[in-house]
């Protein structure tokens, strides 16, 4: 008796296995791994570009009033500049510079403030670069704005849903975090002294789908820069007020003198006039001794 050999399932099994393997590989390939990015410009990198350079010894600043102030973005080391320029709109950047400039202009001690194009600053130019600006543009004090932005995109446990392909379009299981620090530091160029600094911070968190993640990260980056710039503006005003109070309360912190050629004016201040008026009123109300 001849029996038929059982039908061989080997080719079919191989085909199914291969298809499954392809599907797994394909789906895994679709699921982007968690990622992070970092953009920054650094004051330290700009002012102290090499490790072997001896640190500059700051001296007690001599502020010749009224001050002439320069304002610029610290040049980026390069790797993050493109992202920064894309995500922080030029118009908003100008707005930020104008905000900062307006706050400086409101100070009695500031004569003029010049917005300095970034092209005037070399990456790693240091104080030598600032000395050049001082000669070229006649500024005594420089306000440098720097930024640092870090972004992370993390999948949570529910991201297994991405395996269904369609899930990667629908379910917002990817968490984006964007942290931005902006900082304005104000240096007296002659003495290399830090006069004051003001920070601006912003954190943006949201969830989105795998497929929309890249776009959302770009939007978050821009929003975070703008929010940090607003925060910087607010803090700068506070720090400017504190700086003036510090100059009054700690005269040893800085030598203050008039710039040659200034116009002097004598004024009875409002509170003094009001005080005199009150004394006069008191005398008028009670005319006899």
């Amino acid at each position: 008796m001849e029996s038929n050999p059982p039908p061989s399932h080997t080719p079919r099994a191989i085909a199914i296995s291969a298809l499954l393997a392809l599907l797994i590989v394909g789906l895994t390939g679709c699921a982007m791994p968690s990622r992070s990015s970092h953009k920054s410009s650094s004051i330290v990198q700009f002012l102290y570009p090499t490790d072997d350079r001896p640190l500059v010894e700051p001296q007690i600043p001599t502020l010749r009033l009224p001050l002439r102030v320069g304002l610029a973005f610290a040049p980026s080391a390069g790797h993050g500049a493109r992202g920064f320029n894309q995500n922080f709109p030029e118009a908003r950047k100008q707005e930020l510079l104008e905000d900062v400039a307006a706050q400086f202009r409101s100070l009695a001690v500031v004569d003029n403030i010049q917005v300095i194009p970034t092209t005037y600053l070399r990456p790693g130019g240091g104080f030598e670069n600032l000395d050049q600006l001082k000669s070229l543009m006649g500024v005594d004090v420089i306000a440098l704005i720097a930024y640092d932005q870090a972004q992370a995109s993390i999948d949570d446990e529910a991201s297994i849903i991405y395996w269904t392909i369609i899930g990667s379009y629908i379910f917002p299981t990817r968490k984006n975090e964007t942290h931005t620090l902006m900082e304005a530091v104000v240096y007296d160029i002659n003495s290399r002294s830090l006069l004051f600094r003001a920070p601006g911070v912003s954190s943006v968190e949201d969830r989105n789908t795998l497929m929309g993640s890249a776009d959302e990260l770009r939007k978050d980056s821009a929003h975070s820069f703008i929010a940090a710039a607003d925060d910087l503006s607010t803090n700068l005003k506070t720090e400017l007020d504190r700086f003036q109070i510090r100059l009054r309360e700690k005269p040893e912190a800085a030598h203050i003198e008039h710039r040659p050629g200034y116009t002097g004016a004598g004024s009875l201040e409002g509170w003094f006039g009001a005080g005199l008026l009150l004394l006069g009123l008191a005398r008028w109300v009670r005319p006899t001794s």
Partner: peptide, 22 residues
């Protein structure tokens, strides 16, 4: 004492209060 007149506010920034005149 503190030379605060240097930081006094005038409408024109190039104008500085003169303590000496007072």
């Amino acid at each position: 004492i503190q030379d605060t007149a240097l930081l006094s506010h005038f409408d024109l920034p190039a104008v500085q209060a003169s303590t000496t005149a007072h």
